[in-house]
Amino acid sequence: MSNTDNSLIEFGVTGSETEQTPETGTLTEDTQSIISTRGLDVWYGDDHALQDVDMDIPKNRVTAIIGPSGCGKSTFLRCLNRMNDMVETARIEGEVRFNGTNVYDDDVDAIALRRQIGMVFQHPNPFPKSIYDNVAYGLRVQDKPVNDEIIETALRRAALWDEVEGQLDKSARDLSGGQQQRLCIARAIAVDPDVVLMDEPASALDPVATSKIEDLIEELAEEYTVVIVTHNMQQAARISDKTAVFLTGGKLAEFDDTQKIFENPESQRVEDYITGKFG
């Protein structure tokens, strides 16, 4: 296995650096897309979970994906880092281009891909190891050097350092739910990925922990591309630059600047959903 671990596939050039992130909600025209999907279809057995999705996810922005439950938003997210590979019944067609490379090409290694696209899950899932070992996990798996400095930087970026300083040997299980989730974010960004995917990261947390996570996501967008799935429309409106709305049947109903989606959506069905008429 170590062979495949080391054969990291280089993904295409990341293009010219964009200027410093402007305020949330606005988008400059020169933003590049880092991930683009074309005609993406997903089936789970006979169930058509995602239908013909075309989407361009901008680099160094927060992209929110909203929609009613069962609309395929988590499925979409899991296509981006090929986590659906582990579902035996899943069948995927179409393209997901990450920096120009189709990640479903035969010569792309899913393991190498996931090293550049990190993920945070709905329920905080730290390993039953120490806080230090949790953050170091990705580095060790990827044969990268581990030192206290890298661990501290990751924990600082995840806004957790002040709360766990001096007790990194403690079990991650002793942390509160919100702290555990920030630890999971620290674990994901410790390996310095390009993109961080978040699957309803705050839905299992209380309001205070949620607002901390939201603040954190806005800060993360300065360095990373964040794609966040949420069922909470206010959250999407608060933190994202772009919003995609999936409606039933796994179809992308609308994808545009967050402001436009929430104030003046093109489609009537999206407006109904946003205003709470259904969903």
Partner: peptide, 18 residues
């Protein structure tokens, strides 16, 4: 062993063996 721990590991770019 919770499946979430396996998922977390795979999402970090770990192989089956790791």
């Amino acid at each position: 062993v919770p499946d979430e721990h396996r998922q977390a590991s795979y999402a970090m770019g770990a192989s089956d063996w790791h």
